[in-house]
Simulated assay, not measured.
Amino acid sequence: MLELDLSAEIQALRTTFDNIAEVVNVDGLKAEVAALEERAADPDLWSDQENAQKVTSALSHRKASIRKVEGAGNRLDDLEVMVELANEMEDEDTAAEARAELAALEKTIQDLEVQTLLDGEYDERSAVMTIRSGAGGDDATDFAEILMRMYLRWAERNGYPTKVLDTSYAEGAGIKSATFEIDAPYAYGVLSVEAGTHRLARISPFGSADKRQTSFAAVEVIPLMEEATEVDIPENDIRVDVFRSSGPGGQSVNTTDSAVRLTHLPTGIVISMQNEKSQIQNRAAAMRLLQTRLLLLQKEQEAAKKKELAGNITASWGDQIRSYFLYGQQLVKDLRTGYEMTQPDQVFDGDIDGLINAGIRWRKRPDQD
């Protein structure tokens, strides 16, 4: 006789879910959606395209949050019904389906719980990621491209739109650097724990001596700012260079000088943009990103000054945050949290939620304040 009892597991999930729903405040989100829908219905909205995009993006993000929370609640209800049916019908197939759904729901609710920890000033924004190769020659540039693919695959797995803004290809393998957007609610808050130095140890595919090679790549994550009007940039502080967009091996993908490079002379910050078709579009996109970086730099300097005055100038994040081992032991280990995964291929294919969630929980520990 079939006796499927998942009541304890379901009750634990429901308790966690109720806490999440209280923090997320679905009723409050629905009120925001109603207000945004009213603004979106205004026939004059698109006379200001930038403002219209802000409204529609905010509307989309809040609806997505509501769908996630309500969807998880509905699935919990359905799971209880599924367990009852399995027992009434003594159907092992339905019981197996219920067990599988329980495991899937545990992951879904865990992800939602982690999202409730994201309460930083910019956490709910979309993200702009930059990957830069470090020491290690061809292995490092290849590693940078592997990391770029990893994050883009993670976004694809979650259904998040992405846009590659700029790529600098290496003469040999891989990339010197790349910048791309991930447009999703809380993408910045989630991915900000990925910022830092990543290390790869493997038998190099580019050498003939079969020696172990260690290479490095840096990951930078900043929030996507719709506007950065708090930063005024005098024209004299910017050098503008235009050039032709190019792909791997220098093959031209554009017959006009549409790509733009902005150099902020006082800070040395350089922004390149070649994704858009026209020079005007690329310059506008580059300027927005430059304003964002300067705004964040300003806030970082203010925070550093506060720490200095308080007598604490030790950064809470070390440079090297994670190691990827592809020789002997197959292992990915986060050096901050101790979280490990023994299947690097899956990690490089975008299966990084466990690493990310562990990082978010670690960052919210009292001893990390």
Rank of each mutant, 00 (worst) to 15 (best):
A217V: 07
S272C: 14
D183C: 04
A140N: 04
M287I: 02
L29C: 03
V24W: 09
D367M: 07
G120S: 09
G318Y: 10
E226Q: 14
A140M: 00
T108F: 07
S177C: 01
A52D: 09
A135F: 03
M273L: 07
L355E: 08
R244W: 01
N51L: 13
M82H: 11
D78K: 10
D78I: 10
V69K: 03
D353P: 03
G311N: 06
Q279V: 05
A140S: 09
Y188L: 03
G328F: 07
L59F: 01
I10P: 05
D27H: 08
E22N: 11
L309D: 11
A135T: 14
G159I: 08
G174D: 02
L117K: 13
N87R: 07
R365N: 05
A127P: 05
I356P: 07
V219I: 09
E106S: 11
I10V: 13
R149K: 11
T292F: 06
E220A: 12
L200I: 15
L59W: 00
G159C: 05
L331I: 09
D5G: 04
M129W: 01
F206C: 08
M287G: 07
G249L: 10
I222E: 09
E101I: 00
L265E: 10
T162W: 00
V242H: 12
V347S: 07
A178T: 07
A310H: 06
T263M: 11
A286L: 02
V270E: 11
S47R: 13
D48S: 03
V253K: 14
D349N: 12
L326R: 12
D353Y: 05
V128R: 03
Q330E: 15
E302Q: 13
A184D: 02
W46A: 03
I203T: 10
R125Y: 12
R75T: 12
D232T: 15
D111R: 09
S245W: 08
A103P: 02
D349E: 10
Q343L: 12
E300K: 12
D349W: 01
W362C: 06
Y122T: 02
Q298P: 00
G311P: 08
D369S: 14
D123M: 00
R125W: 04
S177E: 15
L4C: 12
T342R: 14
D5M: 01
I269H: 08
Q110C: 09
I175R: 08
R239Y: 02
S245K: 13
K305W: 10
A187Y: 03
K306D: 12
A303L: 14
D27A: 15
A95L: 03
N312W: 03
D93R: 07
T141D: 05
S65V: 09
